[in-house]
Nucleic acid binder design. Structure first.
Lengths: 218, 218
DNA sequence: ATAAGTATGTGGTTATAACCACGGAAATGA
DNA sequence: TCATTTCCGTGGTTATAACCACATACTTAT
């Protein structure tokens, strides 16, 4: 309960607000065991899932049975919110219990239904806008960084964004090499090679996850 | 005005609602001439831009000056909403007048501020959630389709999603070849070649923008 | 301290996608 | 209708990234 009020979705809500909403909006919690399918591709969802404990894996399976993992939502995070917010939009992915977990379901239609009494749910909707907007920016950034054809250009794109975001030519990235490769849609060893070349070419310096990007502006 | 009530952002609002909000939320319209920079990268925005006429181009410029166009927002659409919804998030992109245009600015902080009188703005916020959620799904889909390494696999990914969405093995896609290549992050001629091979291999049939995807299930 | 496991860099090979160029088809517009 | 332009497929070449294998450095645990 104390945990809930600290999640991005309920940020700014008092415990009283939450209890109030729990009644009005008919919150529901469910337990799942590792491997259980929480939401199935093709189904229509109307509920946001808030992960109370454990984690949820978002999996994509194409027509030919090829699977790939699109993301993990940990405790405190929400999943399926984009599908839940759009009426009649079938899920493209499965939500699978990555480990034993506890999920709080919140009905978007109820959330959107006007409630003259409590202004609390408006706060919730606002948080929801911010959460989806933030996910949007993350997706946009990745799109930008993976659009160049060459490894070097993708790294340039990513680095320049990080330089701007961190306000310095000296940046620390939140990825190890494999994760960076996944993020930029590259092979790890090819990535390592290109980083080495860029260092030789005097474009960057790096040590582990710390990089110095040398712009020609002195 | 009649136009405004038909935009996705104001869907479901009566003219009275809109006039009401125009007062409370202090709507502002601005004219821009083709080429004008409406919003500059690095700046903090708090307003959503609703395109009343003309169109707005979203441009990304990296540290080395390389530009790329990320998208166009036409009349009725909104832009910068993700940045406006997240406090202190600097724009990564420029918003440029693609042609002479008229922009309605709506302050998100005002939109989020509680107004005891009018419930109309809640409707607006709900629409905003749906708009961002929809953009989210679009971005996710593209991410899914561009993650495979080979052209054929990207096409499989895209086709299988379309088959599912259109509910038939016979699909019509909204792209010409160049656009499909851009969408899947491919070279056009390479794309054409691979489509030809897939036809030879008996996997698909196509004619212009109509495709038949042959699953092995008869 | 040592061992096991993980992360990273590097060389070499190969598949493959980008690139360039062009010819024909189809759409557009006068 | 004809002219013009855009769109699409194809061949050939080349650059490049994936892939494989391995050696070294770094972590972590016991």
């Amino acid at each position: 309960m104390d945990f809930i009020s600290k999640t991005p979705l309920f940020r700014g809500c008092t415990e009283e607000d939450i209890l109030n909403m729990a009644k009005h909006l008919d919150f529901r919690t469910d337990r799942y065991k590792k491997g259980d399918i929480i939401l199935r591709a093709g189904s229509i969802v109307t509920d946001i899932g808030l992960v109370l404990s454990g984690s949820v894996r978002i999996e994509y399976t194409d027509l030919w049975g090829n699977k790939s993992i699109l993301g993990i939502t940990h405790a405190g995070g929400v999943f399926a919110e984009s599908y839940a917010c759009i009426p009649d939009e079938p899920m493209m992915v499965d939500a699978v219990a990555n480990e034993d977990c506890n999920i709080l379901s919140i009905s978007v239609p109820r959330l959107f239904a006007p409630c003259p009494v409590c202004g609390s749910q408006n706060r919730l909707i606002q948080n929801l806008v911010m959460i989806t907007a933030e996910k949007n920016l993350q997706l946009s950034r990745r799109s930008m960084h993976t659009s160049p054809k060459t490894i070097r250009e993708r790294l340039f794109s990513y680095f320049s964004q990080q330089v701007s975001a961190q306000g310095s030519n000296k940046i620390v990235i939140p990825f190890d090499r494999q994760q960076l490769a996944d993020y930029l849609n590259l092979d790890r060893s090819a990535l390592s090679k290109e980083l080495g070349k860029m260092r030789n070419d005097g474009l960057i310096e790096f040590n582990k996850n710390s990089f110095v990007i040398k712009t020609d502006i002195e």
